[in-house]
Amino acid sequence: MAVTDEAIQRIKGMIVSGALRPGDRLPKESELAAELGLSRNSLREAVRALSLIRILDVRQGDGTYVTSLDPQLLLEALGFVVDFHRDDTALEFLAVRRILEPAATGMAASRISEAELDALERRLEALGDEASVEELAAADLEFHRTIVMSAGNAVLGALLDGLSGPTTRARVWRGLAQQDAVGRTLHEHRAILAALRDRDAEAARSWATAHVAGVERCLRTTTAALG
């Protein structure tokens, strides 16, 4: 194991064991290096690596702290990473989304508030039937984010939010490739919304599956044509 990797594992061990808790300040570099039996250079590299993935927060002139370890914070890097993948790899992310998002939508059926449903309906009406592809993509992203976050599972919400990078581009391509994309998307959104209003988890799951599958089919067709 590389020295830096070993240092990362030792700091991780302190967090997992509870020796360091969310919000705690790490001991001084010299003290922590001695405690863990590491060189200050390897410790410094480990801290830098853990700060990049939002485990640690380095505050200049103050010290280094364990972050809140909130799932949304820790999974932010996922969205950054997936944006660098190829179009064909985006299909794999969409496949994962097709598994997870219907489950989250079904969970939301019993948890989403009437106020949230009313807000979603107002946004759909404001979008109208003549929305541009860019407006449609942005509205679609916000529509699903609101529903997923209302499901009450922060980890699931963070995972799906991280998958939105490549799938947002897929929605744009869908709009460019299919003339009826706006009408179809609005129809599917309204069907999902109606199922949520009825507190019908099965119908909500089914419509969410059909919606994501449509985006996936479009991207698959586009990728094949470009290839």
Rank of each mutant, 00 (worst) to 15 (best):
L26Q: 12
N41V: 13
S150V: 01
T146Y: 01
L78K: 07
L196Q: 05
L176G: 10
E29P: 01
A119W: 02
F84M: 02
L43R: 08
G37N: 13
R21V: 15
E125H: 10
L94Q: 10
S110T: 03
G152P: 12
A108S: 03
E45K: 11
E31P: 10
E130R: 04
A177C: 11
I147Y: 04
P102E: 00
R205A: 03
F143W: 11
S51D: 13
T209P: 00
G152K: 10
I55G: 12
G37L: 12
T167H: 07
E142W: 04
T64V: 14
S68G: 07
G23W: 06
R111I: 03
A103Q: 05
V172P: 03
N41H: 11
R217E: 07
R10K: 12
A109Y: 10
E35F: 12
T89K: 01
A158D: 11
G79K: 11
A201I: 10
R10D: 12
V212W: 02
G13I: 12
E130T: 05
H85S: 01
G61K: 08
G61S: 06
R171V: 11
E6W: 09
L176C: 04
A109P: 11
R174P: 01
L160D: 07
A191T: 09
L91G: 06
I55W: 15
T223A: 08
A46P: 14
G128N: 00
G157S: 06
Q179Y: 07
R169T: 05
D57Y: 00
A131I: 02
L141Y: 02
G23C: 08
V133P: 07
Q179K: 06
G162F: 07
S206M: 05
A19L: 11
D161K: 09
L78M: 15
R190D: 01
R174D: 11
L127V: 00
R205V: 11
S42V: 04
S132M: 05
G152N: 08
A90I: 02
R59E: 15
K28Y: 07
A90R: 07
L56N: 06
W207N: 02
L69Y: 13
T168S: 13
E121N: 06
R25N: 08
H144V: 07
T222G: 10
A2T: 10
E101V: 08
A119E: 11
G183A: 08
G157E: 15
G18D: 09
P102T: 04
T64A: 10
I55L: 15
R25V: 06
D83I: 10
A201L: 04
D88G: 01
M1S: 15
L159T: 08
E188F: 15
L56F: 15
T67S: 15
D70C: 14
D62M: 04
V182C: 05
E76V: 14
G63Q: 13
A119V: 03
R97M: 05
L78Q: 13
A151N: 03
R123E: 07
L156R: 05
R122G: 10
T185M: 04
S30I: 06
D161W: 03
A138N: 03
L160M: 10
D200S: 09
E92L: 01
S206C: 05
G63W: 11
A194Q: 09
L32V: 14
G79R: 09
